[in-house]
Design a protein around this nucleic acid. Structure first.
Lengths: 349, 349
DNA sequence: CTGTTAGCGCGTTCAC
DNA sequence: GTGAACGCGCTAACAG
């Protein structure tokens, strides 16, 4: 008796016995394979379905997996679910996967190589049909290896430079450009950038986007118009904002922050300097954190469609499972500008 | 060729062939069963381990599950991962499970009966060894049925009144009492409660806790000292706070809110009425949302150890898997008072 | 349309 | 200490 004493579930054979047919027939009647199902007599099938229902039959996916090599399970590797970025992504994944009967196996790596290795092993030995990878640091080599072995892999919020891999990402550069264009359209010309840490790709991308948009608007970027934070924290935001606003040259009339935390720091700086927002200085955040509309004034920000990122990633996975030779897609999802009181006094809080 | 064209992984038989032993020996050498492992010659075992490593052997959990009935997988049912309550819980679960080689299968139910049924089916047919349930609405009957069939089930943040089921919950009543006691110790006597919706258990519990603590402090609760919000939203919070502060009787000097959202509404009300916090009115929130320390003044709140809830729940699950007859534990985790500027002007923001 | 047969990879029992 | 044989529950191939 290797099984636990848990009541054994009805098997396909139990159903067959009651129905007076062969187990295979039951398998065909219940299976998801449409053309196999078509082969079985309609009323036989109806009878089998009823009996299965009565017996509370549930297929044993472990057995099916052993047989078919498909677990209908997808591993999701991410650094830390606690990062507010990820829950909507995971929901998007799950919702889309659920439509096709797939289930999500979760793995947090903490961006730690050895833990990541362990978690990955766990997922692979459970025979995941595909992998969704959102970890930042890992050198991609092992994933490329797995991919070459035929395991569908979809990347989230990152792309390999050297190799084409299916991926879904948000367009950060486009986002920051929207932010700059927005305040410009409001009549601002002295637009500063409160940049994020330049050792993070996000910080670099957003800085790049700022420069690009300023350039295409034909606006000068004096050195005093950019300050680089060492962390994405309100404290650093405040420090940098003070620096931007206290500079000897003409003061900026708008600050585009690389992140909502930094934007909060701007609020604090304005308060300390006795300046008003948006009348004296307009502020734009980045990420649309859940608390953005609770601030006073409510913070104009750039919102990313994280849920849709998850959905799209799941979609790509399913496509590649269905046809592993399908062309590799790289999808960029555009962000959305959410205008609130911090740039526009006419806007309702 | 039922398998996908994915490179077939090395099996236990491949290892056996290379090592020149029988597959069973490999199984024994690699297995987690200590006494089986003890039977195999130490150096044979060492050789097998090395070969397994070289061949990049990974046991097929589906096959093992089929044989042993244990999937080393635990299903987690929750209403919505997007609710900020849950990510830390899930991480706590995952971290503890990972220590024992278990993996988490996620299921969002949206508190929807039919979706819940579907998700549950999916988890059960994948042979989860246990279930962690955090869904609010479901009548517990089906879970009790599963539990009776021998499937370990642990409840999170809810307990069945009628039946003893292992569970981990935070002590809401204790939390709200701490909040009341805190402002009382600061010298407040006119302490109002901005209650949550009374059709939610959270709203009722917190209201109850407020009344209990006021009673044991020997403080009167006039009718005008309680206002019940219809939603956990800043708007409702504002409406109720205005009502509390505008009442004809003596104005409360402190408001204990049932939730941080409601507390934000209090801030808005104070602002609108030209009152200062904490000088005129002290505010206490509930839940310690991530943005609480970003408000001005930073919000005093009650923090719940969500991560530990997850860890403890995982611990209970593992205990019951190891010994299904172990006594049923119900664990209440105490909250923590986080004092910030909204109650105490001496406190640093 | 349905029955038969075989085997996925592993862990376990019984021999030796 | 190790080998041999069996079966977990299911589905794919082939008969009929």
């Amino acid at each position: 008796m290797t099984n636990t004493q848990r009541a054994k579930r009805a098997t396909i054979r139990d159903v067959a016995r009651v129905a007076g047919v062969h187990p295979s027939t039951v398998s065909r009647a219940l299976g998801s394979d449409r053309q196999a199902r078509a082969l079985v007599n309609a009323e036989t099938r109806a009878r089998i379905l009823k009996i299965a229902e009565d017996l509370n039959f549930r297929p044993d996916i472990a057995a099916r997996t052993l047989k078919t090599g498909q677990s209908h399970t997808v591993g999701v590797l991410l650094p830390d679910l606690t990062n507010p970025l990820f829950p909507p992504i995971v929901r998007g994944l799950e919702d889309r996967f659920a439509e096709d009967g797939f289930v999500v196996l979760l793995g947090n790596t903490d961006d730690d190589a050895s833990r990541g290795e362990l978690v990955l092993e766990g997922l692979l030995s459970r025979g995941v049909d595909a992998l969704v990878v959102a970890t930042a640091r890992r050198s991609g080599s092992q994933f490329l290896e797995l991919s070459r072995q035929g395991l569908p892999i979809v990347l989230i919020n990152r792309v390999f430079d050297d190799q084409l891999v299916p991926s879904v990402a948000t367009d950060e550069v486009a986002g920051i450009r929207m932010a700059v264009r927005h305040v410009h359209s409001l009549g601002h010309h002295r637009i500063a950038h409160l940049a994020g840490p330049q050792d993070l790709s996000t910080g670099r991308n957003r800085y790049r986007g700022y420069l690009a948009e300023m350039d295409s608007l034909g606006l000068d970027v004096e050195e005093s118009m950019v300050c680089i934070a060492n962390l994405y924290s309100p404290e650093e935001g405040r420090r940098c904002a003070v620096e931007l606003l206290d500079a000897t040259g003409a003061r900026p009339t708008a600050i585009v922050a690389a992140n909502d935390m930094l934007a909060i720091g701007c609020y604090q700086a304005l308060h300390a300097l006795g300046l008003r927002c948006p009348e004296d200085v307009a502020i734009v955040g980045f990420n649309d954190a859940p608390f953005s509309d609770l601030l006073s004034p409510p913070l104009t920000s750039i919102r990313f469609p994280h849920y849709q990122v998850g959905q799209q990633a799941a979609q790509l996975v399913l496509e590649r499972i269905a046809d592993p030779t399908a062309p590799i897609k790289v999808i960029f999802l555009p962000p959305e500008l959410v205008v609130r009181g911090s740039t526009c006094s006419r806007v309702q809080g």
